[in-house]
Design a protein around this nucleic acid. Structure first.
Lengths: 195, 195
DNA sequence: GTCAGGGTAGACAAGTCGGTCTACCTCTGT
DNA sequence: ACAGAGGTAGACCGACTTGTCTACCCTGAC
């Protein structure tokens, strides 16, 4: 075996991460046991512990994959618009589609995975990974903000993240995709005021 | 024993609810075992199960007490201002004090208890109680909103709750009390636009 | 044919959970 | 004095948890 990973190995690992994400996202990390992940993924316990030394490592891999999937999706949406204000407006419209369950590759909406995990899991490595997602999101938005308000980009970023967090929470707790449109309304007021 | 509850009984029950709240709030309901609540409250296990048939009932009592404490505190803050716009602004200033840990009777800030519990616990009765808190909060704010915008009070309420949720999440995840002031800025823009 | 590697199923260990129960103690009313 | 309510400490039960380990199976190289 000269390769570092045979196709089968990669597949099993992926199946584990995908199954774990769906269960963790829907019901919470601590509510879902290893055995449930195993039966959902169709994988033996020994194989899980061959790839991941512990449940927490599996969770970190899940966070990693989710961050990539979410940020790639959002980056794709933003790139369909001109840089600056249109892309920033598109951000909230994309959130709306996500809340409404119209983005299959993100699975049906149950709030922000990173917010939920950060509130539930105390582990420092997990906390750090959730923080990193916020930084990556900030890096994604920052070029557009600097394009519109070179002097106040950081302050406007805080507004955007607050509106995103608020819309996600409201959408998750009340099952109302329109929360994204409310956030967009507020954002447009803020954008106009800062112009 | 003609009284329905002797003083001692009330005390033990209160100690249980208080200790459980602090632990549940800081570390999450599922992360805290019954035994930990018992030793923190200085109460025997049999006494707990004399007052509450199960852990979930204890959680419901904790939610009840927290709702009363939080809403009473906020109602007190709002009542110090004239009805309408000043009280609504005071809402966000009160949140800021809460985030900054300057409201001892609410304990040090770790996000909104009801949001955290609603995201963590699946039980329908618990979910319903968390929803009820949102309704009670809405009822607290509505008179002031109707005073300012009789026609658009409901829409403005959604804006306020979105800003509250966003500020709480941001403050909890980043330990930044200023999130409340950001929410206030956005609220003032919204208030001006709706005038 | 045979033999190792990576997979399977699942028993098992060690520990925690919520919840029950026994045995004892300490007040209070009469 | 004494019965009984309500408290304490903590042993105990069954179910569940993560993680280990045994025993087996299937496939591909030679």
């Amino acid at each position: 075996m000269s390769h570092t990973a045979t196709p089968t190995v990669v597949d099993k690992k992926q199946q584990l991460v995908s199954a774990a994400f769906q269960l963790f996202y829907q019901r919470g990390v601590h509510q879902v046991g290893i055995n449930e992940v195993l039966s959902a993924a169709g994988v033996a316990k020994k194989t899980l512990y061959h790839h991941f030394p512990a449940k927490q490592e599996l969770l970190l891999a899940v966070l990693e994959q989710r961050a990539t999937a979410w940020l790639d999706w959002m980056a794709g949406r933003l790139s369909q618009q001109p840089q600056g204000a249109p892309a920033l407006q598109c951000f909230f419209l994309a959130l709306h589609d996500w809340f409404a369950g119209e983005v299959p590759q993100l699975h049906s909406f149950h709030g922000c995975f990173f917010t939920k995990v950060a509130l539930e899991v105390q582990d420092p490595a997990v906390q750090a990974r959730c923080q990193q997602f916020r930084l990556d999101l900030a890096a994604l938005l920052m070029p557009h903000l600097q394009c519109c308000w070179p002097q106040q980009a950081a302050a406007q970023l805080d507004f955007m993240l607050l509106l995103k967090d608020g819309a996600e929470t409201q959408a998750a707790l009340q099952a109302v995709p329109a929360a994204a449109l409310r956030a967009l309304s507020l954002w447009q007021l803020s954008a106009r005021a800062a112009a």
